[in-house]
Nucleic acid binder design. Structure first.
Lengths: 187, 187
DNA sequence: AGTAAAATTTAACATAAGATAAATAATCAG
DNA sequence: CTGATTATTTATCTTATGTTAAATTTTACT
């Protein structure tokens, strides 16, 4: 749990009681490379913290697979459009490497919000931050060329190339594998 | 304040005390057509509720003006990437019609969170919902053609064409005015 | 190690959208 | 109401990215 507590402290400091309460609704999960952590069609009821490994959220548009985002160590991952609406998700979460995660039951977590306003505050801040990232992503996708986006991704996550197949990166950037290969070929 | 309370109740019911506390930090604002409500370079410290009118958030990419989003009646608008980070915003908010708004001081609002967990919860839910909208917007921009996005916008906000100049709609869709005109010309 | 499968690149051609400029239509100020 | 300004459309040409297919490289499995 240490990594998780360090992660939490970036957003909001928790009392020992609050930490214990979260510990009780969390459990370790290990997943092999390429396995799905959560599958399409199920409602998201778990928030994951990545201790080790790389995750991606993906979905299908007319049988073409599209990667929505990646997440690396010391980050949280969840399909928020399902988590916050209670509707089944059209998306899946897959681990790209052998991974170690901490699974936090979102149902139990949301119950804790009543007893621990500090926990509600913590997750409010975590998701506010994720919201800001998503607003910035809109800007990035909408108004930068594919090449600019590729370079921005490399700058932001320099090791993404070593850890993530290019086919996933291509759809994350909103282009085809062929286009990405062409962009990479230029230099 | 009635419209605002109705809006709040969609997310979280508030006690009378909480409503009064929010009333005290809110004030009406009237803005003429085409005036900026908030300008580029300032840190966002106000959350607006639109009673009447249409707003857009816009910014510049290399002296080309880009519309990030629109907001209509009975919605909240704020430059969240500044609101949640405390950094100056590169974006402005402009009212596209003569408008009536309620301005809520975000600094005072965030102070209220300590006294009224129900207010913190309310805004947590409001911004979670906005976050989900933004996640869906990423999907819309990234994996639908300009024409699909135009049709989706019309379906979602059928009166947008009557109220918003096409040049704003074009950059919102991530295309040029010329392209939009071409798409519209097809039918 | 050797083979099959998967990932990536390359090539050739097609298409959607960008850029620029000019024409037309709509709006606004006096 | 009229001229000036702004918004929108149309036209032409250019370019980035898509599509399909094949070639090559890498990875995974026995």
């Amino acid at each position: 749990m240490n990594e998780l507590i360090t992660y939490f402290n970036q957003f909001n400091h928790l009392s020992e009681n609050a930490i214990n309460a979260i510990s009780e609704i969390s459990k370790p999960v290990n997943i092999k490379k390429n396995q799905n952590l959560q599958s399409i069609g199920h409602t998201c009821r778990t928030i994951y913290f990545i201790k080790k490994g790389v995750a991606r959220i993906y979905y299908y548009k007319e049988d073409i697979e599209i990667t929505e985002c990646f997440a690396f160590e010391n980050a949280i991952i969840a399909r928020v459009e399902s988590l916050f609406t209670g509707k089944p998700s059209r998306k899946a979460i897959q681990m790209i490497e052998d991974s170690e995660l901490i699974a936090i039951s979102s149902v139990k977590l949301f119950d804790l919000y009543d007893t621990f306003p500090e926990i509600e505050r913590l997750f409010r801040k975590i998701f506010e931050s994720a919201y800001v990232d998503t607003v910035n992503r809109v800007e990035s996708i909408q108004f930068h060329s594919a090449e600019e986006r590729y370079n921005a991704l490399l700058k932001e996550s320099p090791n993404v190339l070593q850890r993530v197949p290019l086919k996933y990166i291509a759809s994350y950037l909103g282009i085809t594998q062929v286009s990405l290969s062409r962009i990479r070929g230029i230099r």
